[in-house]
């Protein structure tokens, strides 16, 4: 299933945050969206998943979601959004319970996603017992449990320290290499974008417009830390964004 954004524009009151964004997210690819703070990256992601409605333009799902898909558009949030009163397994069960699956099948799905995210030993732990990286792995496991057609990842690694981020990036690459998934990955971190993105959409500062779409052909599994090609791409992206980022930083926030 592909996602097509056509002519998305949006304002919050007087403030125009986004102007005429048209973008295709092809199946089986990771599209990263980068841009200076306040450019509407996260808003765009909320439009794609239907958590917010744009003023103009539309988001289209092209084709049917794969069989066995319980929630085609599934988010991974920056702050994990785990229920603190439920165990790891309980948090994953939460998103399966409404679908009327037999108990055995639910357990099977939970076992499977926990194994894939290397969390099998922590099924009964409460979120407060977990480190930030583990919490995000639980959130990723929860997202995979519903077998999504498209993962919508909103700065999923931004709340983590740089070492954990590195580990989780390896995990994500591993997950994608085994079973390629479609994802829209919003980040302000260019290193993440060049490691994970098949294409990188650079947004301008407010009102957010697409400045450039950078394609990376190197297979995800071959992209290592400090790879010279990737570094060049990252520098190129930074050159595109630097002035915008500086200007965005100096802007007053309209509340």
């Amino acid at each position: 299933m592909d996602i097509r954004l056509s002519g998305i524009s949006h304002s919050y009151g007087e403030v125009e945050v986004m102007r005429d964004i048209t973008l295709d997210v092809p199946s089986g690819r990771i599209v990263c969206i980068v841009g200076p703070s306040g450019c509407g990256k996260s808003t765009l992601l909320r439009f794609i998943g239907g958590l917010e409605r744009p003023d103009r333009g539309e988001v289209l799902q092209l084709g049917a979601p794969p069989t066995g898909c319980l929630n085609p558009l599934t988010y991974v949030f920056q702050d994990f959004a785990l229920l603190p009163w439920r165990s790891v397994a309980g948090n994953i069960a939460l998103v399966l319970e409404d679908h009327g699956l037999p108990r055995a099948q639910m357990d099977e799905i939970i076992q499977d996603v926990l194994a894939r995210t290397k969390l099998s030993d922590f099924a009964q732990a409460l979120p407060k017992q977990l480190s930030g990286g583990m919490k995000q792995r639980v959130a990723i496991a929860r997202a995979m449990a519903v077998n999504p057609a498209v993962m919508l990842m909103d700065e999923p690694l931004s709340a983590l320290d740089s070492q954990t981020r590195e580990l989780l990036m390896d995990d994500l690459i591993g997950l994608w290499t085994r079973t390629p998934f479609t994802a829209v990955y919003v980040t302000h971190n260019l290193a993440e974008a060049v490691r994970l993105g098949h294409s990188i959409v650079v947004l301008s500062r407010r009102p957010g417009q697409i400045r450039e779409v950078v394609h990376l052909d190197m297979p995800l599994a071959e992209r290592g830390l400090g790879d010279p090609d990737l570094d060049r791409k990252q520098q190129y992206l930074w050159a595109l964004m630097r002035d915008e980022a500086r200007a965005a930083d100096a802007e007053l926030i309209h509340v």
Binding site: G49, L51, L70, N71, L73, T74, Y75, F77, D79, A81, L83, W85, L94, V95, E97, D98, R142, V146
Partner: peptide, 25 residues
């Protein structure tokens, strides 16, 4: 509220959101 948005984003029913997210919270 982020927990409630999470529930909505996973397509939980209104009753489920109230019973499993709002009440315990």
């Amino acid at each position: 509220r982020t927990l409630i948005r999470m529930g909505q984003s996973f397509g939980l029913s209104w009753v489920s959101i109230v019973r499993k997210i709002v009440l315990p919270g």
